[in-house]
């Protein structure tokens, strides 16, 4: 039976922003470099290896899925390279090559390709892949255990583990400015807060990501962390700590904002972001996992189609 629903699109007039998918990918890749380059500087050759293998393998997986599914070659849009880069940003520098390659397979093939390619994925491919590999080989992604042999000039303990296991007093030594400057251990491109914020602001100003999602995600983190801290300041760290540790900033600017898995209407975007931020803190503070960003984003990806139904009534519809 012919489905009219498939032909329902937004209402005219349409306005081309003068950009393209490849241009968007290039810009996000450039913005991500602001956090990735300091990460590579901090962790050295090992981090460069992880990032480059992730990008290369993501492109190769996309080529393979194009060949297997007999679809046009789509690597030129840069999305596969971008997925590889964002996946690498969350990894510890010590990740073995096979875990990187397996992860990009999950991201490009399972997270995107089998749903029909770019624009059809219900979950952020990099987040889905990261969650799968973390659950499969948790020992590889324990930052405390993975980075044992690195010498730093700061307290080299994953801050979220400290706060989870030992309460708020244990993380008082982490100053906000130090966290922003990347003086914490974590993923290659997830710890240099200044770079992530600058990259995020650039992408918001250029319109490549929606500010409503990023700002509301951070607002959700802030409000939920403040609430917990108010209830029990001995047990739960304050919002300043949660905003700049773990995957918070990469989540706000590079993960939650992925086009296909996030809403397009104003109110839904705010709900989506706020929910993601609040869920992150719930998982961090009363859940069993150390960082809640990845699970929170997968959950809001799931609710995206529902919240996106909150939209202005179409003029003339039903007439």
């Amino acid at each position: 039976m012919f489905s009219t629903l498939k032909l329902t699109v937004s209402h005219a007039p349409f306005w081309h922003i003068g950009s393209s998918t490849s241009s968007k990918s290039r810009n996000i890749l450039l913005a991500s470099l602001l956090a990735v380059v300091p990460g590579c500087y901090q962790y050295g050759q090992a981090a460069v290896g992880v990032v480059t293998i992730a990008i290369a393998s993501a492109i190769i997986w996309e080529l393979l899925i194009n060949f297997i599914s007999r679809r046009p070659i789509s690597v030129g849009d840069g999305n596969a390279a971008l997925v590889g880069m964002i996946f690498a940003m969350m990894l510890p520098a010590t990740t073995p090559w096979w875990a990187v390659v397996t992860g990009t397979f999950f991201a490009v093939v399972i997270g995107k390709g089998i749903f029909g390619g770019i624009g059809a994925n219900p979950f952020n491919p990099a987040v889905l892949a990261m969650t799968i590999v973390m659950l499969s080989w948790s020992h590889l992604f324990d930052f405390n255990a993975a980075l044992l042999n690195y010498q730093f000039d700061f307290n080299a303990v994953y801050p979220l583990v400290l706060s989870k296991a030992f309460g708020a007093p244990a993380v008082e030594s982490f100053a906000v400015m130090d966290l922003l400057k990347g003086k914490q251990i974590g993923g290659i491109g997830s710890t240099f807060g200044i770079g992530l914020i600058l990259g995020g602001v650039y992408l918001m100003l250029r319109g490549y990501i929606r500010w409503e999602i990023s700002v509301s995600f951070l607002a959700g983190i802030f409000a939920a962390a403040l609430g917990f801290n108010f209830l029990n300041p001995e047990l739960y760290a304050g919002p300043g700590f949660h905003l700049f540790t773990g995957y918070t900033l990469i989540g706000a600017f590079f993960l939650a904002t992925e086009d296909s898995s996030s809403p397009v209407n104003f109110i839904p975007m705010l709900i989506y972001g706020l929910l993601g931020g609040a869920l992150t803190i719930l998982i961090r503070n009363i859940g069993t996992h150390i960082d809640g960003v990845l699970y929170a984003i997968l959950i809001i990806n799931l609710v995206n189609p529902i919240v996106d139904k909150i939209r202005p009534k179409a003029i003339g519809k039903g007439v």
Binding site: T52, A56, A81
Partner: peptide, 10 residues
Amino acid sequence: VAIICLVVGV
């Protein structure tokens, strides 16, 4: 990009 990344990564 893929070839350069692959060579550097290996």
